Amino acid sequence: MKYQTKIYGHRGASEYAAENTMKAFHMAYDMGADGVEFDIQVTRDGYLVVTHDEWINRVSDGTGCVKDYDLEELRKFKFNKLHPEQEDSAIPLLEEVLEQLRERCNQDKREFLFNIELKNNVFPYDGMEEKVLQIVKEKNVLENTLFSSFSHASMLKIRELESAARVAFLYCDGIMNVEDYAQRYNVNTVHPAWYLMDRNASFEALRQREIEINIWTVNGGKEIRRFCDMGVNGIITNKPDLGSEIRDDK
């Protein structure tokens, strides 16, 4: 019998491949993950690209902000700074990630989930919500997509634009009575940092309100099993192979 908890590859299989690259996403898929979590930023010429930081310094051989580059310019950098052994490391477009993984799912007759995090809490990219919804609908994966952001206003805008969209509030601290907060805005999914789940009163209050809980970022086997035993809905991990093994080993 499997655990019911879903395993998401955090920026793909980012323990083993350059984060937020196609190799990392395909690796997470091959490792048996239920889905992948990844981040989007907006280029100067309006493309949605998949990378976590607003600045490219940490993950690439370039410097500066994503928003200050055109797509063609960003494609010239290698996004393998954390895994220099990985040659194929171009920054992917949102549509490329969705299209390639959807194609594999169709071939394998397998369900796969996408957690798209909008990185708009530092730079409030104008029109980001409309653009991401358009691409998700064009690729026919809305039912398999969960949108999340630290910008909770952005999540409410997503839902205003598309009532069928599923959204989640990301948070790491600073929210008191998160169950009341989520319910006030009619949001039924939250993404807390893993350490907040040690506050059992909060966990139980969320479960009583039937609010789904996906936690980030959990990489130790002992912790993954503990959270599966608690019954969280999803675990976001850099090690989807370990998560998948534990998920299947109840």
Rank of each mutant, 00 (worst) to 15 (best):
N188G: 02
A28Q: 12
H10S: 02
F203I: 12
T217Q: 02
G220R: 12
Y185P: 05
N144W: 08
I211R: 00
G64K: 00
F114D: 08
T51V: 14
D108S: 00
I158D: 01
I56V: 05
R225P: 13
Y47C: 15
R166E: 10
K139I: 09
S149E: 04
S163F: 07
V167F: 00
D34E: 08
N219S: 13
T43K: 00
I236S: 12
A205T: 00
Y3H: 09
N177A: 13
N80W: 09
F77K: 04
L242S: 01
T237V: 03
T237E: 07
N186Y: 04
E129Q: 10
N233V: 03
S148M: 11
L118C: 10
Y47G: 07
E95G: 07
G221N: 06
L161D: 00
M31N: 11
L48N: 12
S154A: 15
G9N: 04
I215A: 09
F112H: 04
V218W: 12
N121R: 08
R247V: 10
S60I: 08
V136L: 02
R209Y: 01
V66C: 05
C228M: 13
V42C: 09
I236F: 14
R199Y: 11
D180E: 15
Q86E: 15
L242I: 14
I246C: 05
G243T: 11
I224R: 08
G9F: 03
A193E: 11
L206M: 02
D108W: 03
R247A: 15
N214I: 10
M155P: 10
D248C: 05
D249A: 11
H152L: 05
L118E: 13
A153C: 10
G220M: 15
N186H: 13
K2N: 14
D249T: 15
L242T: 14
N219E: 15
F227V: 00
I224W: 06
K67L: 12
W216K: 05
V122M: 07
E99R: 09
F77G: 01
R226W: 01
K2V: 10
M27K: 13
K109D: 07
S244I: 07
E129N: 05
E130H: 12
E111V: 12
I175R: 06
S89L: 06
H191Y: 07
N200A: 00
A28L: 13
W55R: 13
S163K: 10
V232C: 05
H152R: 07
V178H: 04
E95Y: 10
S244M: 06
V187T: 09
E87C: 04
E117M: 07
Y171E: 02
E37T: 02
L74E: 04
A165Q: 06
A153R: 13
M22E: 07
I236C: 14
Q107M: 13
L142K: 11
E103Q: 07
R247P: 11
Y195G: 06
R58Y: 15
V66K: 07
R75K: 15
H26F: 13
F203E: 01
F147L: 03
Y29A: 01
A205P: 03
I246V: 08
E103L: 11
E15I: 12
N233S: 10
M31R: 09
T63G: 03
V190K: 12
M197A: 03
W194P: 02
K119Q: 11
D68K: 02
R166T: 12
G62K: 00
Y195A: 06
V97D: 01
A165I: 08
F79Y: 09
R209E: 13
Y125R: 08
K109R: 15
L133T: 06
K157F: 10
